[in-house]
Computed example of a mutant assay.
Amino acid sequence: MTSSNNTPVVGLVGLGAMGAGMAQSLRRAGHAPHVFDVRREAAEAFAREGGTACATLAELGAQCDIVVSVVVNAAQTESVLFGDGTTPGCAASMKPGSVFVMCSTVDPNWSVALEARLEKLGILYIDAPISGGAAKAASGQMTMMTAARPAAYEKAGAVLDAMAAKVYRLGDKAGAGSKVKIINQLLAGVHIAVAAEAMALGLREGVDPAALYEVITHSAGNSWMFENRMAHVLAGDYTPLSAVDIFVKDLGLVLDVARASKFPLPLSSTAHQMFMQASTAGYAREDDSAVIKIFPGIEVPGQKKEA
């Protein structure tokens, strides 16, 4: 269902921290997105300012030329496409020649298999993991790491550009986008873990945490993750923009990919264990900077030391 001015009708599934911002970017670019979220009120709130809230995934699939999926993992993506056993997904109602854009962090081999599965249904596929955080998603400044067949880019390239400042085209079939995202997550997870370790040592040694933050963010030891996540620690605010369990999952994927080719990842393994420890200690749904709470004998800002 292409609109009268030849603009494709775009649907977006998943109005979480990233998806909500991406839907806003689409609206700013002149689209009137059809949206679906398991929280019906989230879809309706978005639609009040422009767009359409769909009651079901099947309804969204039937009305859209391009469907963008922004959910947590491969299992949720499967549900978006093929249903959960009780309600159908969007794949059965999508028209032949329409495009499915997959923005989750997944095993690259799963992404390759999904492309083949959708091809049998006449649906084009873009392997398109995303990075940059909620603020960059909302401003259209995030990054997309994509791989797809030329026909998929031809139909959906302008839509990708509407959502992201950088759309990297990394291959002419699925897999390369997810591989690059896995490597990005290796770095992101290790950087958060080591940033927490550094701040924890500073607290243990009695260094003023605000002064430490100021010095490091203007010195060679800085990283984007230190600057961003340790600001959360200083504020004592662990509202989950990206939760601890996201890196339990993502670093697990990193290690699975490397294990298949017997490639050693010692730092990734250690960081994964740190996030696992934080998760089992009760911080699973807190911001990923809460990994600092696993260190003993320190009192982080805003949290009293346990007796």
Rank of each mutant, 00 (worst) to 15 (best):
D127L: 13
T87C: 10
E41F: 05
V80N: 01
M144W: 08
K136H: 09
K179L: 12
M144D: 02
F226W: 05
L187W: 12
E41H: 09
E205K: 15
I182L: 13
M145I: 14
L212T: 02
E154W: 05
N6M: 06
G14C: 06
G16A: 04
A116I: 09
A74P: 00
G30W: 05
A284E: 12
E306F: 08
K166Y: 13
G221C: 10
A135K: 13
D65K: 00
M276D: 03
I192A: 03
G61T: 01
K305M: 14
E78H: 11
M199G: 06
A174C: 13
A152L: 09
I246Q: 04
L212Y: 04
L212W: 00
A23P: 02
P108L: 07
A151M: 05
C54W: 02
I123W: 00
A220S: 14
K304Q: 14
G97I: 01
M230H: 10
T2C: 05
A235S: 09
N228Q: 11
A43I: 05
G50I: 03
D107M: 11
V70K: 00
G189E: 06
L160C: 14
R285N: 15
A29D: 12
A23R: 06
G30A: 01
W224N: 14
H191K: 08
D107F: 10
L114F: 02
G171I: 08
